[in-house]
Design a protein around this nucleic acid. Structure first.
Length: 615
DNA sequence: GCCGTTTTCGGCCCGACTGTTTTCAGTCG
């Protein structure tokens, strides 16, 4: 791999990647993620260099737009290099300058501007900027005045006279930086939604139960259903706001109060292994909708909404939507056009209600959703679940009971295959017995369908872990990658394409094998997978387990654009795992998934017919 | 750097809080 100057997040240590003297240099196509990272790097470097903030913001936007694209930039450029710049310019947020840089990166494997900026700004300074409370101005002055180029440098100098002499650097600021660095060391990454949501629900309930509270909600990335959460945002309307604030800053697990104002409080919270910041906003009831919209974000969605308001001669802020363009209209005694609920604000701006999960700041205002998004109650089947036969904790009957409790019409028993030794995977003989056991249970149970299946390993070369004659015994085959998850993108693509094309495979389970914050997983050419899956009518799974969420949101969107069916399963190993479905549904909604696009919403007959097809 | 149904130049979203300041800059979301 010779992508000079742009960091590859994947497989950089993989044997055979380094070209030798005798080998011609062959370059793998540059991925969207790599392009997005390059632009994000440039934005950060520009910030630290004190560049025009609009130029900085522009690079950030390009990074975001590319990260969330559902098609490959490499395909777009290669299709016709001569017109690539013009076609890139048609994408939102990408102008001539960025388009040319993208083409340069695609064609040469490097981007001059990126390399120049990276040479100018020390990489360690990015980490300094990452410390909460240190912004571009502070990081820049530390760098310029004291040659601080990393967090280590910062901590080495923080107690010196010279550091204290920096502008706006007082006792409290220094103490806050020290604490922020220590806190950061302990919580390096964003919190997975599976850990954040239960905590948020608990706090939300407690806030809602306080005397005088009229309305309470959580907002932010959690309400938007992002896979990881930066901090928890709460919104409360109360006749006794001081008491609510007092409760919040003294809540269980609060380790530091970062702000305690009349309308905003901010704390650091530690619960179990989770350490996260939580913000509380106290808002008037009559402006609850405007505030909820504002604090739900995303930031980019809000910017678009405010721009749209300005175009219509209005002004939007967290107090409401107002006629005219005066600053702080809420202080002038003006009555808002809309404020109490989100629906009214969208309506006043001639938009349908946009569900929080879709507020990503992409095209949702230009092309508002028309179809209803999938909901928890739409799910009528679980097609990926384990029993004690492999590594689950439930018997076949208990699994069926879980499905019945949730009102499902179908449950598939899909234990691990033989290669999953650590998960007590079944060899062919055990699988035959297990299928008999499942059929025996199915015969006793009349109200729901219990299917005999398997989660069969897709081996590194794309072959399956059982022979076809064994697979043919099953009602449903979920094929999943579990091992060799560091193989290069070409091998991963070929491996998954082979499984997708297998006539007995109906579902590809957790296609990339990634684990959030822990394992990157495979990086196949997703567009190729979508096309093949659509062609062979093989469903791609959105694994709802909050550690997986694989496919991720943008993958589900890309798959649907190609007409691919989506399976939404919890991969349950124990009863409570069925509750993970909410994370899958949130992710699916972020992808704009309509119920019809998900096989688990189909009526029993339609689903069973589909499962039998091709065998 | 991007963008255009007031525009190809001159704009570019809005407010709260803290800490360092004597009226506000920086940071955050």
């Amino acid at each position: 791999m010779v992508l000079v100057g742009v960091s590859r997040g994947h497989n950089t240590d993989h044997a055979g990647d380094q070209p030798t003297r005798d080998q011609p240099v062959t370059r793998q196509p540059v991925t969207n993620d790599e392009v997005a990272r390059a632009f994000a790097d440039m934005a950060t470097a520009l910030e630290l260099l004190g560049a025009n903030r609009f130029r900085t913001a522009s690079n950030s936007r390009v990074a975001r737009e590319i990260r969330d694209m559902t098609t490959n930039l490499a395909d777009l450029v290669n299709e016709d290099p001569a017109t690539a710049v013009a076609r890139l310019c048609a994408l939102p947020g990408i102008g001539k300058g960025s388009a040319e840089k993208i083409v340069e990166l695609m064609e040469t494997g490097a981007m001059n501007e990126h390399q120049k900026l990276m040479a100018e700004v020390p990489r360690g300074l990015f980490d300094v900027l990452d410390v909460p409370g240190i912004g571009p101005k502070a990081a820049r002055v530390m760098w310029q005045e004291l040659e601080i180029e990393s967090v280590d440098d910062l901590m080495a100098q923080i107690d010196t006279e010279a550091f204290r002499a920096l502008p706006r650097m007082g006792e409290k600021t220094i103490a806050n930086i020290k604490e922020a660095v220590a806190f950061r060391a302990q919580t390096a990454s964003r919190t997975p939604i599976g850990q954040a949501l239960p905590i948020a629900r608990e706090i939300h309930e407690a806030l809602a139960a306080l005397p005088g509270v009229e309305r309470a909600a959580y907002a932010g990335s959690l309400r938007r259903g992002e896979e990881t959460i930066g901090d928890l945002d709460f919104l409360v309307s109360s006749s006794e706001p001081e008491a609510v604030a007092e409760f919040f800053v003294n809540a269980e697990g609060v380790t530091k109060v970062l702000a305690h104002g009349a309308t905003k409080c901010s704390v650091r919270l530690e619960r179990g292994r989770v350490a996260i910041q939580a913000d509380l906003r106290l808002v008037p009831l009559e402006a609850f909708g405007a505030a909820l919209m504002y604090f739900t974000g995303s930031k980019e969605h809000n910017v678009r909404m405010r721009e749209r308001s300005i175009k219509r001669g209005m002004r939007l802020n967290e107090y409401g939507l107002f006629e005219g363009n005066e600053e702080r209209p809420q202080d002038l005694g003006k009555a808002p056009v809309a404020a109490a609920d989100e629906e009214a604000i969208y309506a006043a701006l001639e938009l349908p209600f946009i569900p929080p999960e879709l507020r990503q700041g992409h095209a949702e205002l230009d092309q508002p959703p028309t179809a209803r998004l999938i909901e928890l109650n739409d799910i009528k089947a679980e097609l990926h679940a384990h029993t004690v036969a492999s590594d689950g904790s439930m018997s076949i009957e208990e699994l069926a009971q879980c499905a019945r409790n949730r009102g499902y019409h179908t449950i598939a028993v899909t234990d691990h295959s033989v290669s999953q030794v650590i998960a007590n995977g079944l060899d062919a003989d055990r699988l035959r017995d297990h299928v008999d056991a499942v059929r025996a249970v199915a015969a006793r149970i009349e109200d729901i369908s219990v299917l005999a299946g398997s989660e069969v390993d897709i081996l590194a070369d794309g072959s399956l872990d059982y022979d076809d004659e064994i697979l043919a015994l099953l009602d449903v085959v979920v094929a999943s990658p579990h091992a060799a998850l560091r193989q290069d993108p070409e091998a991963a693509t070929a491996r998954l394409l082979k499984a997708i094309a297998h006539p007995l495979v109906r579902i590809i389970g957790h296609p990339t094998g990634r684990l959030i914050n822990r394992r990157e997983g495979l990086s196949p050419d997703m567009s190729a997978l979508y096309r093949a899956a659509a062609e062979h009518d093989t469903a791609l799974e959105l694994n709802a387990n909050s550690q997986r969420l694989d496919l991720r949101d943008r993958h589900v969107r890309g798959a649907r654009e190609q007409g691919c069916a989506i399976a939404l399963d919890t991969d349950a190993h124990r009863e409570e795992n069925f509750d993970q479905l909410v994370y899958g549904v949130l992710t699916a909604r972020r992808a704009g998934l309509e119920p019809e696009g998900c096989i688990n919403t189909w009526p029993a007959e339609k689903l069973h017919t589909w499962l039998r097809a091709g065998r």
